[in-house]
Amino acid sequence: MLAQQLVNGVLLGATYALFALGFTLMFGVLRVINLTYGFYFSAGAFLALFLTRNLGFGVWAALPLAAIGAGVLAVVIDAALLTRLRRTKAPELSSLMVTLGGVLALYAGMTAWLGPDIRRLPPGLISADAIEFAGVRVTAAQGLILGATALLVAGLVALMRFTRLGLALRAMAEKPDAAGLMGIDTGRAAALVSFISGCLAGAGGVLIGLNFNAIHPFMGEAMMLRGFVVIILGGLGDIRGALVAGLALGVIETLTAGFVASNLKEAVAFALLVAVLWTRPQGLFGRAAIRRA
């Protein structure tokens, strides 16, 4: 029972980590708390729904396509909302407010267009089989979550650490003006970061949609609460912190649901956020690892 809970918790935490990674990357490089981020999660799930239900795609094609679609959306929305504020070097709360207004308009528009109902992916999209090992069950959807998360996280870390592009992004995180003077096209780099982050959020939306099989416009909003907890717990802009904090939050939520009460898991997550702000506001690992990476 406990072993099963822990495995479920780690798998749930993997999606939290995946989701929070894009959020923390956006903050780390672009210095913006971008609240439209949760919308790309919903958008990814709905794109996957459209691709599988209406176009008959399989999950292997739908997952990357939906992620890329969400990434493109992120680039467009970022350009529309934030280009002007970046140019005038507006205070960070201005950009936060713009994305807040933007995301309300986006969610409300999506709800007006598609309706607030919970939708389901076509049955049989992913096999219902489960592997059983020492009394612990892992479903195919959970296996996919783990595989996809590991792949995307490894790809992101490799990109940030071992490529010139990653170096450029790290330079931008450190000093945007100096990076621009050194010949880095900061506008293009910002678009690229939005794209990567949007892809991560979109992939997270598809995976959570697969795991719980419930897709609705505001699902990204519920996820954002987890995003906030994870990036505060892990430290703003800290990639390694987001990974560890995401996994930890998944385990804590699953254990709360299993042993205390399932409807208290949001409250527990939030209490954790406030407790971290009181005791360790710099995050579990202190300074942002994205700068040290």
Partner: peptide
């Protein structure tokens, strides 16, 4: 239906 869209756009 569009009231909230409008409120959001006002903030933007």
């Amino acid at each position: 239906d569009l009231r909230l869209v409008f409120n959001g756009l006002i903030i933007v």
